[in-house]
């Protein structure tokens, strides 16, 4: 293969895998929005919490970050469940209008809590596979990035099984489509919302753990990811889960292509440019209402 084509494939592979993580983050945000009509502005901070949970378990107990998923994911679920139960549910009828400040404030508390507990200096973990790569038809792929991509596939696959194969999943979809109708069928929609918020936060936490071998952890690492999750969700259409997956992949590829062919300095900006273009030309998202919702 000639070097130019190889470089293109290399960039695309990198972008696709990074995009997978964006899809994971965006799916959590989109799920929450689809059911509760709330944009969780603390989403990236929950991701940071995930990174620090894995970091803590690694430093203190030498637990491999991938194993720590077994602890971090349920912790994230519980955290999200409690936040909905004791913070957002209290907003009552003002949920849609007040949730922006509530989640933004929560994000500040989370990131400052991490600052208090772990300090401001960037930290990383030292595992053998962090820099390991392997070749696939000439394309070099980072092992932790591939694991992250596969983890995303698994998480999204499980979410689909849950939503489309279980009683509770059906109740979640019903609550998203018509909360009043669901409540009248005997669904405790307040509880369903807590479960959904827990799932969304668990997704962010899992993404954080998967990113730890690849990135430095610092308390405000999440800010950037809140923005990316929001971009992904808007690209795919708010509340549209398949849209969020495609949106994440698109964002990853655009960033990767831009970084390689234009300049690496503006990596985060390329996605925002596309974001603005979508808002101007297709404000309902790339797929709008044509794709099935939650």
């Amino acid at each position: 293969m000639d070097p130019n084509t190889l470089a293109l494939f290399q960039t695309l592979a990198q972008g696709l895998l990074t995009g997978g993580i964006y899809a994971l983050i965006g799916t959590g945000l989109s799920l929450i929005f689809g059911v509760m009509r709330v944009i969780n502005f603390a989403h990236g901070d929950f991701l940071a919490v995930g990174m620090f949970i894995a970091l803590f378990l690694f430093q203190r107990f030498h637990l491999d970050p991938y194993l720590s998923l077994l602890i971090a994911a349920p912790l994230g679920f519980g955290l999200g469940y409690l936040v909905q139960r004791f913070l957002l549910a209290r907003l009552g009828d003002r949920l849609e209008s007040s949730s922006l400040l509530a989640t933004l404030g929560l994000g500040l508390i989370l990131s400052n809590g991490l600052l208090l507990g772990f300090g401001a200096q960037p930290q990383s973990i030292n595992v053998a596979y962090a820099t390991q790569t392997f070749k696939l038809g000439g394309v070099q792929i980072s092992l932790p990035l591939l694991v992250a991509g596969l983890g995303t596939l698994l998480a999204i696959g499980l979410l689909n099984l849950f939503l489309y194969r279980t009683e509770l999943g059906r109740a979640v979809r019903a609550t998203a489509q018509n909360p009043l109708g669901a409540e009248l069928q005997g669904v405790n929609t307040t509880w369903v919302q807590a479960v959904v918020f827990g799932l969304g936060v668990a997704f962010a936490v899992v993404a954080g753990v998967l990113l730890l071998p690849l990135l430095y952890a610092f308390p405000t690492v999440g800010e950037n990811y809140t923005l990316k999750a929001f971009v992904v969700t808007v690209l795919g259409g708010l509340g549209n889960l398949p849209g969020a997956i495609v949106g994440g992949l698109i964002l990853g590829i655009i960033e990767s292509l831009g970084a390689y062919y234009l300049s690496n300095n503006y990596r985060d900006a390329y996605g925002l440019v596309v974001f603005l273009a979508v808002l101007l030309l297709r404000p309902e998202g790339l797929f709008g209402r044509t794709v099935k919702r939650v």
């Binding site: 059906r170 979809r173 489509q177 018509n178 109708g181 669901a182 009248l184 069928q185 669904v187 099935k292």
Partner: peptide, 26 residues
Amino acid sequence: VAHVPMGRQLFGQMTVEENLLMGAYL
């Protein structure tokens, strides 16, 4: 006590059968 609400309040994107199954959520 079941309520057939004003405006029907169906789950629009679900199939007819899924709507009926939601009625048996309890």
